[in-house]
Nucleic acid binder design. Structure first.
Lengths: 121, 121
DNA sequence: TCTTTATTTAACATTATGGTTAATTAACTA
DNA sequence: TAGTTAATTAACCATAATGTTAAATAAAGA
């Protein structure tokens, strides 16, 4: 599965990893934050591997901060997926009106920054 | 990989299958049509398996017509992916302007409102 | 009927994925 | 320094995914 888009889709093909992304969509989190909801179901090394998959797929970026490894969403990969999806828009156009509605709510004050920086350490 | 969305993303995580979808986005095609571009690279049974993956993921529907098996895109699965993507829209908003432009070309009567404030501040 | 075309199934090999436990590295803390 | 916390690596195992070749099925056509 060499190509980037395949890696990205492959990374998204797991509920644990999608849940991690959902968590990261609300703000940065380090490995143990991401692990917390899953430690009843799986071990920490398993978490490490999932995070590595997300990282290699370009969906997240992991940095170093003391002994912590803060992770954040990497928008490029999401854009790649969104761009690929475009060619199939005609097939899911039922959501068109909702999308347009969304555009109308967001458009008047584009780029409201600093909104999602909750949960820092 | 039991859940539907994982199955869908898993099916998309392969360039051969994505190429088949691209072909199907231009209209119905039966198995040998879908196979044609890949018969130098892989066998027909391999193709059959790829198609089965797409089918199980709900991305395509395969019917019977004499000895042929016409396949077509199944929009529901694409909508599911698009819906999941929505929560990450804020991360790929560079494509926002292009998307808005698209909206205008597609529904000229509904014209996107509130556009005048974009980019101010 | 015999043959051809379209497609699938069976049986199998190889590699990838996702998990485990035990050990290790690295940085802060008492 | 010794101990604790955060995270990774190593070694391993089971299962799923992806491909192969050979054989089977099913409908159309001579």
């Amino acid at each position: 599965m060499q190509d980037t888009l395949s890696q990205t889709f492959g990374a998204l093909a797991d509920p644990t990893r999608r849940a991690m992304l959902a968590r990261l969509s609300k703000g940065e989190a380090n490995v143990s934050d991401l692990a917390a909801p899953f430690l009843k179901e799986m071990s920490l090394p398993a978490i490490t591997k999932h995070i590595k998959v997300l990282e290699k797929a370009g969906l997240i970026t992991k940095t170093k901060e003391a002994q912590y490894r803060p992770c954040k969403i990497n928008k490029e990969a999401f854009k790649d997926v969104a761009d690929w999806m475009e060619q199939y828009r005609v097939f899911w156009e039922e959501s068109f009106d909702r999308l347009e509605a969304y555009l109308k709510t967001v458009s008047p004050k584009k780029k409201a920054k600093g909104k999602s920086n909750v949960g820092k350490k």
